[in-house]
Structure formats: structure tokens, C-alpha cells
Amino acid sequence: MKPVVTRRSLVSMMASLPAFALIGQNVRADADAAILSVRLNDAEAQFTDATLSDLPQVSFSTTTLWTQGQISFAGPTLQSVLEATGAMQDVAAIRLTALNDYSVTMETALIGPNAPIVANRIDGAPFSVRDKGPLWIMFPFDLDIRYRSETFYALSIWQLSHIESV
């Protein structure tokens, strides 16, 4: 798969960002703003909603502990996001951090080709911080009982903002 975002372009992109790019009334108001930063060892990348949407998309419907009823989640797989960063092979575990600084560590062994996804669409539309957006690590809980455990519940971090290798 060809990485959408190269290291060089990411650096130049960062230089052009306003300091308060993330601070606004509404995330959706600024589609070009970086909403996810990933740093694996020395490699670092920033993703906007658009660059995430350029990655191969996976979608599924599931119920969760934190929502009501069946909901359709869509977005790139976590694996593709990490691979886009370009240094996934040396990483054994990553730390996922939310906007409220809640963080959790995930072993890369748990990352499959189809799950989890970095969901940036619920029922086909982007979702705001108030709706646990704009990014939510999501597992297909209804698809496999294996996912319905404390480990995966804990890993299903919403308002995701940073990923870094441990």
C-alpha cells in the first residue's frame, strides 16, 4: 500500500499549521486540521480527516457499551494508519491517548488486518468531540465474542488524538 502521507510532506504540513489549529468551536469546521498525530519511534505523522479517509476503509455495524442500538462505524484500520506512518515493523506496543489524556497501551499483536478501525464516521457522517469524536478506536463487538472482554473495552478509546510507540 502506498503511504498517502510522506514524512517530508508531514513536516511541511506541520510548519504551516496555526498553533491553535485544534482549538475551535467545531472540529468539523476545519477539515484540513490535523486530528491525529502518530509517532512511532522516530517517525512522526499527522492525519487530517481527509488523509484518514484516503486510506482503505472498513465498516461494520455493532452495539457498544457506550451507545444505544446498532451503530455503523467506518474508517481506516488502525493497522493501515500505523503502516502509513512507515515504521510499524519495529513496534511491539503503542500508547493511545485521548483528548482528556485518558490513555491505554495496546500490543501491536492485537492489531488485526480488519480490526480495530480508527472510526471517523458514524452512520456515514463525521462525529464531534461531543459525540466522542472525531476519532474512535472501534472493535466489531457483535462479530466475535473475543472482543467482548475488559481488554478490548479498555482499548476502545474515543476522542483519540495521539498514538505513539512505547
Binding site: I23, L99, N100, S128, V129, R130, D131, K132, W158, Q159
Partner: peptide, 8 residues
């Protein structure tokens, strides 16, 4: 941000 988090 904190309000949005609380909201969610």
C-alpha cells in the same frame, strides 16, 4: 475541550 469531553 473539557466541556465537549464532559458532554460526550
Amino acid at each position: 475541550l473539557e466541556f465537549d469531553i464532559f458532554y460526550s
